[in-house]
Design a protein around this nucleic acid. Structure first.
Lengths: 151, 151
DNA sequence: GCTTACTCTATTAAATCGATAGGGTAATAA
DNA sequence: TTATTACCCTATCGATTTAATAGAGTAAGC
């Protein structure tokens, strides 16, 4: 039996999902739950999801620029979904918010980079393992759309 | 079709696998490939895997403290595997080196923490999604032992 | 007893994250 | 037209973590 004593100092310091992604997902889910395409104010989303309004602004802006959301200014304005929730795969959302899905650059589909310390990917044990992780994670994201996240 | 233009500034900044884990995995694989239980010097591992020797020292120390490695001092000393590679599951290695496997604390088996912004996990869309990711990742790590990583 | 190689502590620079502040601009209603 | 509302953008901040380095200490073996 193996002890984890040496790692008792891991009180979840290294969180792999950024707050940006987390808040973005929550906001998208909230919008999806509204069903209609009528704009929802930032302040309403922020309040309902316990998110810093200013921080949320920047996140929604990103989502709008990448074509996931539309916005309307002025009185009665806000953000709204452009597509149907069922047509928004999680792969898209995650890549927009979080960036690479892979745990190491050398197994990333959209953000590939060679490891500078690794002479040969084919014989790299880390590469081999992380390739499997990427594939399984990718499958989860491919099998889920925004519609699946709405309670 | 969705553009990733807004994220062109993602040159893999947020690497999810730390160098510590990466180097640790490489070192373990190297030791496993040596087959025999004879000690291997830190300097030899560091040179072969292109790792900073001092950094590697601290990593191997962690692995020894958690019972994965043994060490021998003095001339002819070094590090060696205590168990057979096939008896070392990746779940163990990853938890020792990287810590939590889950992407958010609220779905972690060994490092659970409640989200302070989330009133109800059962209805949280992020929770629901990340639970699936954790399970699929965990399955990969459970299906791989150190022996599977050796080329 | 001397060499070798592991062990430990402390420190460093760089980078990132999350958050905040404050001002600017555009669209809408009255 | 004017006031209001709400989106849009830039800059900055401290806290934290990572990766790496330096240097001194200690134990085992020849």
């Amino acid at each position: 039996m193996l002890s984890l004593i040496a790692n008792v100092n891991f009180p979840y310091l290294r969180c792999m999902l950024s707050k940006k992604t987390k808040y973005g997902l929550k906001a998208l889910t909230f919008l999806a739950a509204q069903k209609g395409r009528s704009p929802v104010q930032i302040s309403e989303i922020a309040k309902h999801e316990n998110i810093s309004q200013k921080f949320l602004e920047s996140i929604l802006l990103t989502l709008r620029k990448t074509g996931l959301l539309g916005s309307k200014k002025g009185k009665g304005g806000g953000y709204y979904l452009i597509k149907e929730p069922k047509d928004i795969p999680m792969t898209t959302v995650m890549r927009v918010l979080e960036g690479p899905i892979a745990m190491v650059p050398c197994v990333s589909l959209n953000f590939y980079e060679k490891c500078d310390d690794c002479p040969d990917e084919a014989s790299c044990s880390v590469h081999k393992l992380m390739l499997q992780v990427r594939d399984s994670t990718l499958e989860v994201f491919r099998n889920n759309t925004l519609a699946d996240l709405v309670p």
